[in-house]
Amino acid sequence: MFYIFCPYCGEHREEEEFHPKGQAHISRPEDPEATSDEEWGDYLFFRDNPRGVHHELWVHAVGCRKFFNITRHTVSYEILEVYKMGEQPSITAENYAAQQGAASADKERNASQAKHQEGVRA
């Protein structure tokens, strides 16, 4: 159960008030008729599924009914930031990795160990 900050209501609200609407920043081609079938197919059907930083579109469905974006870590489920429609994220996969760089030496060392620890999660 996420606790999501609604940038319009200005406070955290329970997940059950929201609907997730998939990957953020999928914009409709300006001139659909000018796109190739492949480009149109990409727009319709292809989405990212990253392990790590992901930008998502959500709507405060039982609330202010406004859409907004969330940058969320798909492993820890931590919501790194929320931002309104039309705004750009300040945290991206690239700069997040750089930010975590300091601690990465540590992680490398633990990686071999992690291999043994990660079992089947059922």
């Binding site: 209501c9 609200r13 329970e14 008030e17 039982v62 609330g63």
Partner: peptide, 10 residues
């Protein structure tokens, strides 16, 4: 005042 979930309604 808020709009929110009430039991299984709103």
């Amino acid at each position: 005042g808020v709009t929110t979930v009430f039991a299984k309604a709103s």
